[in-house]
Write a protein that binds this DNA or RNA. Structure first.
Length: 425
RNA sequence: GGAGAGGUGCCAGAGUGGUCGAAUGGGCUUGACUCGAAAUCAAGUGUACGGUCUUCCGUACCGUGGGUUCGAAUCCCACCCUCUCCGCCA
């Protein structure tokens, strides 16, 4: 959520900032509603104050054994007026809240202009796309050739956008996950966490997926519904929900491996072949909880941590700063890591690292006590993939393929593969 | 799944319709005493929101949501969670 005070007092600035994303903010409608809220709230609270005062008077009169009938008659009127005022106020407040929950985060000034991913700006690149002296295959062909990647079985079991992996390939994904977690926990100072995969709506509202993006989520039909997490960002970031951290307790860095579940509603026709876009995929997620002044630096660090993984795997990649139109709902600024896929002859997103500022913290009341003032202040949250395991697997397959269709295991992963140097049927 | 007990402030714990945002004890902060510490004494110590918003005033919050009432931490209803025992299970 955007700071409601900012929304009220600097509405034009907010409107301008959101317009950079291509988001149209109905300023007039908002301000009119806000005016109503103000007068209704003042009215309600005045009436409450009156009621409280007379209730107190009645109590005292009764204690002294005086006649309270005239006092009761005098309050009758207040009760009705109060009821009316309270119900109008709650309607207006609910409308305001809906608006506020639907507004995306404010962008940082250094986010480049642009409408969509075509205008994202490359910041740096690492490695050089390899040259092959044979015709490269994409991961689908490689998987079919070895028989280790089986979309037919997956389709029979669960339909489209699922994969079955077998043998060395299944193990390679597990190796990737273990490797990534080990690097982040032992070298980058993250605390490993195991978290629920089913969460309440509150948690998703906290991180910003709800109420706006419910269609992207899987939801259970149990009496109290659960949602399957679309990313470990949700449970990890919600570790700060309604917590007030003491000054020395931040920063916190959490890493977790979880499956991620996405309905991919609205992505019909995109990446329908292969393992790029699945309903279920594995990811190692990184989350930082930091004091407000630290978040800009933390984003650079976090991005670097994700980059380390690709470097150790010797996968060529580039870092792009998302342009205004491409930055996600809850982020103030985002870097994507895009890995080179020889099979597609292009870079594809493998990690997305975002600074969410206080946007999520405000929704979930995640705070840190200011060392000087002693007052709780909103903390800042960041998240990034470190990295998506399914896509990393594709990247390894395609970048380390050999002419015979076998795959060379990157040196960094061999300890996790029982020393194996290649995967083949 | 069955039976029972319970959810109050940083912690423990009182409060079963009125001056209760909440006794008391502990903790913490500040001050006094002290060379210093301990002990002792005194004062302070929640969160959110609003108002012509650093002073000041008001409102809300005692698991959550409803209800009764002039008035609810306290009564009623529903739900959630925790604990104990039984059952079941990994």
């Amino acid at each position: 959520m955007i700071d409601p005070k900012l929304l009220r007092h600097a509405t034009a600035d907010v409107e301008k900032n959101l317009a950079r994303r291509g988001f149209e903010f109905d300023v007039a409608g908002y301000l009119a509603l806000e005016e109503r809220r103000k007068s209704l709230q003042v009215e309600t609270e005045t009436l409450q104050s009156e009621r409280n005062a007379s209730a107190k008077r009645i109590g005292m009169a009764k204690a002294k054994g005086e006649d309270i009938a005239p006092l009761l008659a005098a309050v009758k009127d207040v009760g009705d007026k109060l009821e009316a005022a309270e119900s109008s106020l709650s309607v207006v407040q609910a409308e305001l809240r809906d608006i506020e929950l639907g507004l995306p985060n404010l962008l940082q000034d250094d986010v480049p202009d642009g409408r969509d991913e075509a205008q994202n700006v490359e910041i740096r690149s690492w490695g050089t796309p390899g040259s092959f002296d044979f015709d490269v295959r994409d991961h689908i062909e490689l998987g079919e050739k070895s028989g280790l990647l089986d979309f037919d079985s997956a389709a029979r079991i669960s339909g489209s956008r699922f994969a079955v992996m077998r043998g060395g390939l299944a193990r390679l994904q597990r190796a990737l996950i273990q490797f990534m977690l080990d690097v982040h926990t032992s070298e980058h100072g993250y605390e490993e966490a195991y978290v629920p995969y089913l969460v309440h709506g509150d948690a998703l509202q906290g991180t910003g997926q709800l109420p706006k993006f419910e269609a992207d989520l899987f939801k259970t039909t149990t009496e109290t519904p659960f949602y399957l997490i679309p990313t470990a960002e949700v449970p990890l970031t919600n570790l700060a929900r309604e917590v007030i951290f003491e000054p020395g307790e931040l920063p916190r860095r959490y890493a977790a491996h979880t499956p991620c579940f996405r309905s991919e509603a609205g992505s019909y026709g995109q990446d329908t072949r292969g393992m790029i876009r699945q309903h279920q995929f594995e990811k190692v997620e990184l989350v930082h909880l930091v004091e407000a002044s630290e978040s800009a630096a933390a984003l650079e660090e976090l991005t670097g941590h994700a980059e380390t993984i690709l470097q150790r795997l010797n996968l060529p990649y580039r870092v792009v700063a998302l342009c205004a139109g491409d930055v996600g709902f809850g982020a103030t600024k985002t870097y994507d890591l895009e890995v080179w896929l020889p099979g597609q002859q292009r870079y594809r997103e493998i990690s997305s690292c975002s600074n969410c500022g206080d946007f999520q913290a405000r929704r979930m009341l995640a705070r840190v006590r200011n060392a000087e003032s002693g007052k709780p202040e909103l903390l800042h949250t960041l998240n990034g993939s470190g990295v998506a395991a399914g896509r990393a697997l594709i990247a390894v397959m395609e970048n380390d393929q050999r002419e015979d269709g076998s795959i060379e295991v990157p040196a960094a992963l061999r300890p996790y593969m029982g020393g194996a140097t290649e995967i083949s049927a």
